[in-house]
């Protein structure tokens, strides 16, 4: 999991201010290719804002966000960043509710996103094969023709992860994937993420410490917009500063 792999994502001194409130305070973070990273931190630590900055939703006041060798993400908008291969799952599951599970995945499949293509596009057998494969991975095969708005909360979470997979990104940003899930579902999700991590880099933001422990990856603790501590889950949970601000007095 370590070694001298190439850097995939590099945040350097990123600051974001909302009306005087510093959401990110000179945040720096390095993610290697193929790495899975868990990010934890109390409410308002800047986890979601960090995701917003990486995906182009929020422009930082200062600092650099470099993807791959030398792509500056701060100069790009959301679709361009998505096109580069960065996928994002939201805290609240967001799927296209009027569409079927199948259509949700179809829209997420990597491919030409331009209107002139989608206007004439016909579903190819290659596309259906890939959707079938993803449906299997996310355990929603029986629900393929259901309206996605009718799925349960956990199923929606998985569908969204499936959509992320269909995007075939190099980097997945996953915001609280197990919020509201049963223990069994949580376990399955951890397994799913580890499987995804075999081919892709993943950043997971999570509150659930058991889940983070189950992932067994390097952990970054955010506090007041910057990195408080970084290391294995055992390392950070023994860090006195982390204990003070987060894990409880």
């Amino acid at each position: 999991m370590s070694g001298n792999r190439e850097t995939l994502l590099y945040l350097d001194g990123v600051s974001v201010t909302f009306d005087g409130f510093r959401a990110l305070n000179s945040l720096s973070l390095v993610l290697a290719e193929g790495e899975m990273r868990a990010v934890i931190g109390p409410n308002g630590a800047g986890k979601t804002t960090m995701m917003d900055v990486i995906t182009g939703k929020t422009r930082p006041d200062t600092g650099k966000v470099v993807f791959g060798k030398d792509t500056d993400l701060t100069k790009m908008d959301e679709p361009a960043i998505a096109d580069l291969g960065i996928g994002r799952k939201f805290q609240k599951p967001t799927v296209f509710e009027p569409h079927t599970v199948w259509d949700n995945l179809l829209l997420a499949l990597a491919g030409d996103r331009r209107p002139r293509f989608t206007l004439w596009a016909r579903q190819t057998s290659e596309e259906s094969d890939r959707i079938d494969a993803i449906l299997k991975t996310i355990r929603l095969r029986e629900h393929r023709d259901r309206r996605s708005g009718d799925l349960s909360h956990g199923q929606k979470q998985w569908l969204e992860i499936g959509m992320l997979l269909a995007q075939e990104p190099q980097l997945l940003l996953v915001d609280e994937p197990v919020a509201g899930m049963t223990d069994a579902e949580t376990e399955q999700t951890a397994e799913l993420l580890r499987e995804i991590n075999r081919t892709r880099s993943v950043v997971v933001v999570e509150h659930d410490m058991a889940f983070v422990r189950a992932l067994g990856v390097k952990v970054t603790v955010l506090h007041e917009g910057s990195v408080l501590s970084e290391g294995s889950i055992d390392h950070v949970s023994n860090d006195p500063r982390v204990i003070e601000v987060y894990l409880g007095r």
């Binding site: 909302f18 009306d19 409130f21 959401a23 917003d52 939703k57 929020t58």
Partner: peptide
Amino acid sequence: PLKGRAVE
């Protein structure tokens, strides 16, 4: 404009 996280 009113700025802030909520507005975003």
